[in-house]
């Protein structure tokens, strides 16, 4: 905190596809650093004082909702919980997440992508009886460890970092990507989901699915929630490779 009077230099990609003829340019903004400043605070400061048109997405500003992922000095990460003090040079370059439809500046349409992903992997419990459970009766029991394990896999916040960090996904549009594989692994672990391995194979048993993953591990290394992506993709791969 000693160098608190620093002037930070933000290099931000500016582009509004809604405006005809606009072209992407990098713009530089200077911001006086404050103690405990996050990129969330800094960007709002820029919007308030320098450029009201700057677009970005923050919701929870607490690292929980996953809406603020962007490329920060080359690394995909959640901007709201990135302290500016992390960058000793005081130069911070911000780009929108690649691999998603750009809305404008730093804002991308992860929602559309994630909905499509959820539909593709059928991200819900498949159990014909789920809608007929007698709500008055005791719930079905579940082993506490299994419940914990599922929760571990459900901590994904759909931020999209793993998509932007995956060169495979970037090269091959159709590839499901780590977030989708993770989601499927979550259901494959859940005893309430009655889908068989054959069913899962129908969803990810091809080169757009688990066999398309080239184990680049960008997903694993950039997931801000530290989900066990590598292990889970490997688990699915083993499972799917053994389907007869």
């Amino acid at each position: 905190m000693s160098e608190k009077e620093r002037i930070l230099k933000f290099h931000i990609l500016r582009y509004n596809p809604q405006i005809k003829g606009d072209t992407p340019t990098m713009k530089i903004y200077e911001v006086q650093e404050a103690p405990g400043m996050t990129i969330f605070i800094a960007l709002n400061d820029i919007r308030e004082k320098q450029d009201p048109s700057l677009q970005f997405d923050f919701i929870c500003r607490a690292g929980i909702c996953g809406s603020c992922a962007m490329i920060i000095n080359g690394q995909p990460d959640l901007a709201c919980r990135t302290l500016t003090s992390k960058f000793p040079e005081g130069e911070i370059k911000l780009l929108p997440l690649p691999g998603f439809e750009l809305i404008g500046d730093l804002s991308v349409n992860t929602g559309k992508f994630m909905r499509a992903m959820s539909e593709r992997v059928e991200s819900w419990i498949h159990d014909q009886d789920a809608d007929n459970v007698d709500l008055d009766r005791l719930e079905e029991r579940m082993d506490p460890d299994v419940a914990d394990e599922i929760y571990e896999l459900e901590r994904c916040v759909e931020c999209g970092c793993c998509i932007s960090a995956c060169a495979t996904k970037r090269m091959r549009e159709g590839f499901l990507g780590a977030v989708g594989l993770m989601r499927l692994a979550r259901y494959a672990t859940d005893p309430r989901d009655k889908r068989s391995n054959e069913d899962f194979y129908e969803i990810i048993g091809d080169d757009d699915g688990v066999f398309g993953c080239m184990t680049l591990l960008g997903c694993q290394d950039y997931c801000p929630k530290d989900l066990p992506l590598q292990i889970q993709i490997a688990y699915l791969r083993r499972k799917m490779a053994m389907v007869r």
Partner: peptide, 16 residues
């Protein structure tokens, strides 16, 4: 691929 590598400088991607 090259652009991605240049951006992230991520070792496992480079290894690939």
């Amino acid at each position: 691929l090259r652009q991605q590598m240049g951006m992230m400088k991520h070792s496992d991607t480079n290894l690939w």
